[in-house]
Nucleic acid binder design. Structure first.
Lengths: 148, 148
DNA sequence: TTTATTTTGCAACTATGTTGCTTTTATCTA
DNA sequence: TAGATAAAAGCAACATAGTTGCAAAATAAA
């Protein structure tokens, strides 16, 4: 990553935290930075590793929970029972997530992506059922891994 | 449950195990019976509790894994990071699951149901992505919990 | 019924997630 | 900018979830 982009991300991080009424701390800056630098989603374990063993495990848990609560990141359930986290788009706010896109898990690189342009389909439920949220996770091969 | 139905289920259980080349043991019978008696899906914890503390935790893990491998049950990922298990329809076989239905998690009773009649929709993926499996989990209120 | 194979239970271990409390850090205000 | 106040981090201890190796027990086969 170029120096210019690096500086830009550092600027974004402080902004984003303040906009959500969060005090700006080292761990929050570092973890948020990881998300901004990263194309796909991150699991808790990834973050612990990539934060350079600088922060306590508990801090990572609490930071992620705070970010979810504030609508900065959202969770993605996957078949292997390991929750992934990814940045929300701007429409999300504290206590109110508005992510209607689908998620894609690559069977090759095992990265998880938000496909922001693919909205969740309407599901025709049987009589008596009513939906409040629809989660779609597609498994397959991502565009970086496809055979050309 | 009536006596007649009970006997019928016990019969099914042995059949189902033999058909899948599994030796018929107490724990397999008991756990499979739980699934047959149950409308919704079961989490690992449910099974441990409802098997009456008769079996070792490890046995439950291994039995569930065996059933998944043989195509007797399938897993359902949920947002709270607790995998649920449910019976497969007959089309599934060892190493080859064919479940194309969607799953429904009730926010009231927190039961999980397979909606076998609702097939997973076609998803239009961006260029470069290819899908091998689509998982749809709908949250909301189930037909047993709806206000009438 | 005996033998061979599979499965279970146990013990120990690793990983994952949570809670209470003290110390440290960030923010607010004078 | 320094001190007061509020928030977050770190630590320790704990709770839960999941795994592995191995000996004992149960099942299936001969």
């Amino acid at each position: 990553m170029s120096k210019a982009v690096q500086i830009n991300i550092e600027g974004q991080v402080g902004e984003l935290l303040k906009r959500n009424n969060l005090s700006v701390t080292d761990s929050r800056k570092k973890i948020l930075q990881l998300f901004l630098e990263q194309e796909g989603a991150l699991a808790h374990g990834d973050i612990e590793k990539r934060a350079g063993e600088k922060f306590d495990r508990v801090t990572v848990y609490r930071t992620l929970q705070t970010f979810v609560d504030k609508g900065i990141i959202h969770t993605i359930p996957t078949a292997d029972n390991s929750i992934r986290y990814a940045l929300c788009k701007d429409e999300c706010s504290a206590g109110h997530h508005h992510d209607h896109h689908i998620h894609f898990v690559c069977n090759n690189c095992s990265n998880t992506f938000c496909l922001d342009d693919v909205v969740t389909p309407e599901i025709n439920l049987p009589k008596g059922y009513s939906a409040s949220h629809v989660e779609v996770v597609v498994e397959g091969i991502c565009k970086n891994c496809k055979l050309t």
